[in-house]
């Protein structure tokens, strides 16, 4: 198993667009979930994706993470067309996803959870043949990356079940950041958390962005979106209704676009 290079994303191409979708279509029988949607994630940004229920948010995310296959259009990762065979394929290409349910194994410690599915093994024959774990190195790497992300935890050897909900989700988010080489997608990461705990996770998301990893944040929580996002991608009726900046638009504007009260002539970016 390869040693991951924590928090060192591969720089994207000169255009600065890490992940792009062009005219993606997805139909379920007679229902059109995605009606030619465009999407653009730039290097080093937090892009929020918002939309009413049924606007195509989750289908878009599923298409971007390989969970569904689009019927039309194309998806480009670092400018190259990609066809994900499944979520695992997307992960191998450097896209990590965090879900709202707390994705941890409760009885294992924090370090083990961070390396779950990608455990480090001892060098030499002990690791390759006997598959002995390198617990010490995993612990050190885990401590280092948690310190880099400035995420406060009691001790890296604590079982995850001894943590609060926010800290647990923090572990899941940190795991994604630790292994994502291109970008992290967060699907309602704070939906299961209280206000204070949400704050901890938002801090962590910001720290990930500041380390240079772009983040796609799907959220219903408008205040959170406005607190964090660099740009906001608004879905409506299976398309991108607009991309706005929280600096130039208010929450009211965004909700108006989401619900169709305000028509946007074309999906324009608010400039770099």
């Amino acid at each position: 198993m390869k040693t991951p290079a924590p928090l060192q994303p591969i720089p994207s191409d000169s255009a600065g667009i890490v992940l792009e979708a062009r005219n993606v279509v997805k139909r379920y029988g007679h229902m059109t979930a995605l009606d030619g949607v465009d999407f653009e994630l730039r290097a080093g940004e937090i892009l929020a994706v918002v939309g009413d229920n049924g606007a195509g948010k989750s289908t878009l995310i599923k298409a971007l993470t390989g969970a569904v296959h689009p019927d039309g259009g194309e998806i480009l990762l670092d400018g190259e067309p990609v066809h994900f065979k499944g979520p695992l394929d997307a992960r191998h290409r450097g896209i990590e996803t965090v879900y709202q349910d707390l994705a941890v194994a409760p009885a294992l410690d924090i370090a083990s959870n961070l390396f779950l599915g990608r455990e480090l093994r001892r060098p030499g024959i002990m690791g390759s043949v006997f598959r002995r774990l390198d617990k010490k190195r995993m612990r050190q790497e885990a401590e280092r990356s948690m310190a880099e992300l400035k995420f406060r935890l009691p001790s890296i050897t604590n079982a995850v079940e001894a943590l609060s909900g926010g800290q647990r989700q923090g572990v899941a988010v940190a795991r994604a950041a630790l292994f994502a080489r291109k970008l992290v997608i967060m699907d309602e990461p704070t939906a299961a958390l209280g206000v204070r705990e949400t704050g901890q996770v938002l801090e962590l998301i910001r720290a990930i962005r500041d380390r240079g990893l772009p983040v796609v944040l799907i959220s219903h929580n408008m205040p959170n979106v406005f607190e964090l996002a660099d740009r906001i991608h608004i879905m409506r009726l299976g398309r991108r209704a607009a991309v706005v900046s929280p600096k130039t638009h208010s929450m009211g504007d965004v909700v108006a676009i989401m619900t169709g009260a305000t028509r946007v002539e074309e999906a324009r970016d608010p400039g770099v």
């Binding site: 979520p87 994705a103 294992l108 599915g117 455990e119 006997f130 002995r132 774990l133 617990k135």
Partner: peptide, 24 residues
């Protein structure tokens, strides 16, 4: 306690879905 397999059985028992999508 010391091997990859051991880590995996606790991961699968603790949270089967997560273990699955993390590649266990």
């Amino acid at each position: 306690l010391k091997t990859l397999w051991g880590r995996w059985i606790f991961a699968v028992g603790g949270n089967p879905d997560v273990a699955g999508w993390l590649g266990v």
